[in-house]
Design a protein around this nucleic acid. Structure first.
Length: 252
DNA sequence: GGCCAGGAGGCCT
DNA sequence: AGGCCTCATGGC
């Protein structure tokens, strides 16, 4: 099928946790539990999960194209076979990546869990969904979000909630237009906008540039820019990032 | 062990 | 170019 472990823990989502027997995550107001030993039967047979895990996308085609660009990248793709780009909920992705800015993975997870527990619906015993934009606007204030530890990101979250209708239009916009539209939201810059497009809207050619991917590019592809990987920059970026994180043991 | 400075998958002014 | 919330981390 695909590499579930890499797909869930390559940095595109913060909602999944793993224990001895299962992967667990609340996505789109639903608790999903996958057996660690045999996760794919449930995924394949569930239309929502098929879409979430992007089963219909031709990854072989993309990976063949990328492998032809550079043998080292080809080897990487082969060893990861395959990282899928999730089709996540746009609003949840927006919350997640606004929270991620200038922050560590551990803290991002803790903050999002606090947001769930405080404002989200309990969809299963002890499992809360992320709050909807309306739930956040009706239940929270900047001060309350700061009290949870969001710091200066507090006003960004509320601003995004007030402008949630912008997300509905992205589906019909080209990449460049969508990037500009998302950045109209206070607190969403190029990096967060790119992550939303790639991880919620399946824009496979979006290559989010952050401190990690800039460094990776300058180290391994000093002569290139993200367009080198076009039209699969997002997929390439995910493999490069995952490999770099594994190399230094930053797995979470 | 305790303390503290710099950094963490940016963005705004 | 600086400042920003906060906190886990590593260096002393």
């Amino acid at each position: 099928m695909f590499n579930l472990e890499a797909t869930l823990f390559c940095g595109q989502t913060f909602v999944w946790q793993k224990d001895e027997s299962s992967y667990r995550g609340v996505i789109n107001h639903r608790l999903v539990t996958l057996d660690v030993n045999e996760p794919f039967s449930k995924i394949v047979s569930d239309p929502f999960l098929r879409h979430y895990f992007d089963l219909e996308y031709p990854y072989e085609e993309a990976e063949t194209h990328l492998a032809a660009l550079d043998p080292a990248l080809g080897a990487l793709l082969n060893s990861h076979r395959s990282i899928h780009i999730l089709n996540q909920d746009p609003w949840e992705t927006t919350l997640s990546f606004i929270t991620s800015q200038n922050n560590t993975i551990r803290r991002i997870r803790n903050l999002l869990n606090a947001l769930r527990a405080t404002y989200g619906k309990e969809v299963a015993p002890n499992h809360h969904a992320l709050p909807t934009a309306n739930e956040l606007l009706s239940g929270s204030t900047e001060d309350r979000l700061r009290a949870l530890g969001f710091g200066y990101r507090a006003e960004y979250l509320l601003g995004a909630a007030r402008n949630v209708e912008l997300l509905a239009r992205v589906e019909d916009q080209e990449d460049e237009e969508a990037l500009r539209a998302l950045q109209q939201i206070h607190g969403i810059g190029p990096k967060v906008a790119s992550c939303i497009l790639l991880f919620a809207y399946g824009r496979k050619d979006i290559f989010p540039l952050d401190t990690w991917t800039r460094r990776i590019l300058s180290e391994y592809y000093p002569e290139e820019d993200p367009s080198f990987f076009s039209p699969y920059g997002g997929i390439a970026q995910q493999h490069l990032f995952y490999a770099e994180r594994r190399k230094i043991g930053l797995h979470w």
